[in-house]
Simulated scan of single mutants.
Amino acid sequence: MIKAQLKISGGWRTRHGADAWLRVRGYISTARKHSLHLITTLRDAITGNPWLPTTIEMA
């Protein structure tokens, strides 16, 4: 996906912009892998109630 973004827009203007784009893409990818409704998941994240995957505690 990173290569597609570089080809389409020529890259990012700042390091901050690239980091933000990658964080959002990672969040979307993880939500899809957990079969969550994408629009609802993004809306919840923006309104301050982000979905977080469950963690496995090691004994």
Rank of each mutant, 00 (worst) to 15 (best):
M1N: 10
I2N: 02
Q5K: 02
G10Q: 04
G10A: 00
G10Y: 13
G11E: 11
G11C: 09
G11I: 13
W12I: 13
R13V: 14
T14A: 12
T14L: 09
R15M: 07
H16E: 12
G17C: 03
G17L: 04
G17N: 11
G17H: 10
G17R: 01
A18M: 11
A18K: 05
A18F: 13
A20S: 10
A20F: 14
W21D: 13
W21M: 11
L22Q: 14
R23L: 12
R23T: 13
R23E: 15
R25Q: 14
Y27S: 08
Y27P: 01
I28T: 11
I28K: 07
I28R: 09
S29C: 02
S29E: 05
S29Q: 04
A31F: 01
K33F: 00
K33E: 05
K33N: 00
H34S: 02
H34K: 02
L38I: 14
I39Y: 03
T40I: 03
T40W: 05
T40N: 04
L42C: 08
L42Q: 03
R43F: 15
I46K: 07
I46M: 08
I46N: 09
G48L: 08
N49D: 10
P50V: 14
W51C: 01
W51R: 05
L52N: 04
L52P: 00
L52M: 05
L52C: 06
P53K: 01
T54D: 05
T55G: 02
I56Q: 06
E57I: 04
M58I: 03
M58Y: 08
A59H: 04
